[in-house]
Design a protein around this nucleic acid. Sequence first.
DNA 1: CCGAACCGGGTACACCGTACTCGATTGCGC
DNA 2: GCGCAATCGAGTACGGTGTACCCGGTTCGG
Lengths: 269, 269
Amino acid sequence: MSTERSGDYLRRSLELLWGRRERPTRGPKPALTLERIVAAGVRIADAEGIEALSMRRVAAELRVGTMSLYRYVPGKAELLELMIDRAYGMTDGTDAPEGANWRTVLRYVALGTWRMYLDHPWLLQVNLARPVLGPAAVAGFDYALSGLADLDITDHERIGFVAAVDGYVAGCARTHVNAAQAARQTGISDEEFWAAHGPMLEKAMLSGAYPHVAALAEDTFAVPGERLFEFGLERLLDGLETFLARRSGAGGGANGGEASGGTDGIEAD
Amino acid sequence: MSTERSGDYLRRSLELLWGRRERPTRGPKPALTLERIVAAGVRIADAEGIEALSMRRVAAELRVGTMSLYRYVPGKAELLELMIDRAYGMTDGTDAPEGANWRTVLRYVALGTWRMYLDHPWLLQVNLARPVLGPAAVAGFDYALSGLADLDITDHERIGFVAAVDGYVAGCARTHVNAAQAARQTGISDEEFWAAHGPMLEKAMLSGAYPHVAALAEDTFAVPGERLFEFGLERLLDGLETFLARRSGAGGGANGGEASGGTDGIEAD
DNA sequence: CCGAACCGGGTACACCGTACTCGATTGCGC
DNA sequence: GCGCAATCGAGTACGGTGTACCCGGTTCGG
C-alpha cells in the first residue's frame, strides 16, 4: 500500500514538474495557477528566507485559503521541488557562449550557478533528498556537457568534471550565502558577533594551541567570499586541464607526475 | 535592548562552546550534564535524521522533562552549535601525518571531513548562519594550515587553498549524503524513484532537447559518489600544485599560460 | 435541467520551540 | 542548627507549523 501511495505521489510530482497539465472540463474554473503559487513561494523565500515559507504564508500572499493550495500541490515538499526547478529556469542563458572552449563553458556554468545561489540562497538551505530532475536542471546539465563533447575522455570522466565543478560551487556558495544571511537570520550583527568572539579567540591564539592560525596576518580573513570562490574555481579548472594534458600528451606534463597521486581516471565498477 | 539581549546570548553560547563551566555552589546538584544532552542530540540526529531532533525528543531520550533542557542550553540553536563542534571533535586525529607534504595534509583533511559528513549527515542539513568557531573547528583549521606553512604563498592564498578544499568537500558531500538518505527521508526507494522517472526521462531524451545527455552511455551514472569525490579532489589538488609551480617556477609550467585565465593570486582589497 | 465533478476553504489534530511559573531541593552565612 | 537565597526539575500554555477530513457552492455534460 505504501508502494502504491508513493508511486502515485511520484507520478503526480513528476507531472507537475514536466508540465503535463490537462484541465478537467467539469467544475468551476480554478482561481489559482500552479505558476502563481510557485512564483509566490519563490518571492517569499527570496525576500524573507526559507524559514518564512509556510503554506499559510503562501496562501496569505495569494489572498486565498490555506487549504486551497492543496488543490494544486500535493504538499510542501512538492512545492519546494517546483520552486527549485523554477529557480533553475530563471537564469537566462542568452549570453551563454556557444561552441566555446570547455574551460569557458565550465566557468560560465559555475559563475551562473554561483549567481543563482546568491539570488536564491534557500536553494542550499532546503535539504532535498534527491536532485530535482526538472526540465531546467536537465537543460543546464546538457549545456555543461556540450562544452566537454569534443574532449577525448570517457563519459564517466565527463560527469566527473561536471560534478567537481558543481560540488565546488555549491560548497563555496553555501558558506558565502550563510554568512551573508547571518545578520538577518540571527538578529546579531557582524560587529556584535566579532566583538563577542574577539576576546575568546585572542585568548585561544595566545594559548599556543593554534600556532598556525595565530601566525596569520590580521587582515587575512578580510578577503571577500567571491574572490575566494573565483580563486579556487580557477585552480580547479587548472587541475582539470592538467588531467586533459596528461591524458592526451605523451605521459605527464611538466607538473611532475611523482608527487601527484591518484591520476587515474574513473573506471567503471 | 535587543543589543543587550543578543550580546548576552552570544556570551552564553561562547562560554558553553569553550567550556567555561563553573558550577554554582548553592542549590541541588544538577541531574544532567551539558555533555550528556549534546551527546543525546548527536545520537538522535545520527540515527533518525535532523528532522527527528526536537527538544522533546532529546528530553525523552534522557528521561527528563522537556523544559529541564533549558537549564543547560539557551535554546535549540545553541544545542545545534554544540552538536556541531562535538561532531568536529569526534574525528580523532591520531593518524594525522605530521610534517608531511602539503598535498598529503590537505588530502588527509579532505578525506577526514568527507568521512565526518558521512557519519553525521545533518552537519550539512542544518543551515547555520555563521561558522561554529569552537575549539575543534579551530584545531582542524590549524592543522590544515600547518601543511601550508612552508609554502611561499601569502596568507590570503593560504586560506584560499583551505577554503577551496573545504568548499569542494562540503558541496560533494552534500549531494552524496542527500542521495544516501533519500530513501529513508522520502519513503521512496531508489527503484521506485527511477521507475517513475524512467519513462519521463526517456521521452525527454528522445525529444532531442538534450542531445549531450542523450549521448551519454547508459551506465554513466553508475559511478559511486565516493569515486566522483576522489576524482575531483585530485584534480583540485593538481590545480593547487599548478599554482605553486607557476608561482615558484620561472613563469608558467608546461600547462600553457594562454588558455588559463585568472592565474593571479589573491591580493588584498 | 439535474446530477456528477470539481473548486474553495473552514475546522481540527498532532507536532514544534519556548515563556512563564511553580514547588522541591540544596548549602551558605549566621 | 536554622533560615533564606539560590538553584533545580518540570508542568502548563501560547503561537506557530503541515495537512487530513469534510462540506457547501459552482460549473458543465448528458
